[in-house]
Design a protein around this nucleic acid. Structure first.
Lengths: 128, 128
DNA sequence: TCTCGATATGTTTTACGGTACATATTTAGA
DNA sequence: TCTAAATATGTACCGTAAAACATATCGAGA
């Protein structure tokens, strides 16, 4: 990456990263969750992608994948028109995102103490 | 891969996958945990690697990385001799592995219900 | 009817992770 | 002193995921 914005993720912020495997090859992790979040926040796949330093192509591909996972699509998109097109979460999309965030929070909570113990074993230089 | 044994992992078994980021670029996930587990079970890096369909080189590299993370190494290895060499977990190694497994279990528990809800949204064909 | 910003895809190129392969080293015991 | 199996590394190669690049399409409103 050019700047220090986006990175492979998964190794940035301290904490627990959760990946939910619903079925073989059907999984949701931080990446897909963030895309959904970005679409909810910005109202567009492109903006969501930009926000997380990801090409539109890739963002769109993730959305495509997500939409294929469930019975109903998670993201609804439109082209042209007044708003020049855009995308938003469907009720199912909202549900899935909220559910993931909830699991994330629960996990974070249940893991915090144990993590602190492990952090104690790190070299002093990297301690905090 | 040639056969269907080892794969990228992370998308196989249904459930929650946990990655613990202790510091930027210092993280433990299913892969490193499994290596530690394998060494504990088999007494050798090579055997551990074989068991999970991973090249010795890669397995060794992971161990190298893990040993560099903490104040004390997690894996202690020896070469030659009666046993023809081998490797085993240090007390710290045992600690870290146990801790990770504990967090995994806790996470699995706290996430189960929400996961079931999400699974309900999958297409019938992929339902169960 | 022209515009503009976003969606929707296809194609090419590049970067990187990982495997494959090769070799050196270690050391108790036969 | 030769062996055997595992550790310890280096290097070359390759397949794939992601980026880069290129278009095409859409459609309300100016």
């Amino acid at each position: 990456m050019a700047d220090g914005t986006a990175m492979k993720a998964g190794n940035k912020t301290i904490g627990a990263r959760l990946r939910i495997v619903l079925k073989p090859d059907i999984a949701i992790g931080p990446g897909k969750a963030d895309i959904l979040q970005g679409i909810r926040d910005t109202g567009s796949i492109a903006a969501a992608g930009r926000r997380m330093g990801m090409s539109y192509k890739r963002a769109w591909l993730l959305v495509e994948t997500l939409n294929g996972y469930f019975q109903a699509p998670l993201v609804e998109s439109s082209r042209g028109g007044r708003s020049r097109g855009g995308a938003k979460l469907t009720p199912t999309g909202d549900l899935v995102l909220d559910s993931y965030r909830r699991m994330e929070a629960l996990t974070e909570g249940v893991v915090a103490e144990e993590m602190e113990t492990l952090r104690q074993l790190l070299p002093d230089t990297a301690q905090k």
